[in-house]
Simulated scan of single mutants.
Amino acid sequence: MSDPQPGRADLRAVLFDMDGTLVETEQYWGEAMFELAASLGGRMSESARAATVGSTMRRSMAILHADLGLVRTEEELLDDARWVEYRTAQLLATGISWCPGARELLTEVRAAGLRTALVTTTPRRLADIVLSTIRADLGADPFDVTVCGDEVPARKPDPAPYRQAMSALGVGPEACVVIEDSESGVAAGLAAGAAVLGVPTLQALAPAPGLTLRKGLGGIGLEDLAGVLAARQPAGVPA
Rank of each mutant, 00 (worst) to 15 (best):
L36M: 07
L36F: 01
A37W: 08
A38H: 10
M44A: 06
S45P: 09
S45Y: 12
E46C: 02
S47P: 06
A48C: 04
A48D: 05
A48N: 01
R49H: 11
R49I: 11
R49M: 13
R49F: 12
T52C: 14
T52R: 11
T52G: 03
G54F: 07
S55M: 15
T56P: 08
M57G: 08
R58W: 08
R58N: 11
R58E: 15
S60Q: 09
M61H: 02
I63V: 15
L64Y: 01
G69T: 02
V71N: 14
V71K: 15
T73N: 05
E74V: 15
E74Q: 14
E75Y: 00
E75P: 00
E75L: 06
E75G: 06
E76D: 04
L77F: 12
Y86W: 15
R87Y: 01
R87A: 00
T88F: 02
A89N: 10
L91F: 08
A93C: 05
A93E: 01
T94Q: 13
T94N: 12
G95K: 14
G95I: 14
G95S: 10
S97F: 03
W98H: 09
W98D: 00
C99D: 00
P100A: 07
G101C: 04
A102E: 00
A102I: 03
A102H: 04
E104H: 13
L105N: 04
E108L: 10
E108Q: 10
E108H: 08
E108M: 11
V109M: 10
R110F: 07
R110V: 08
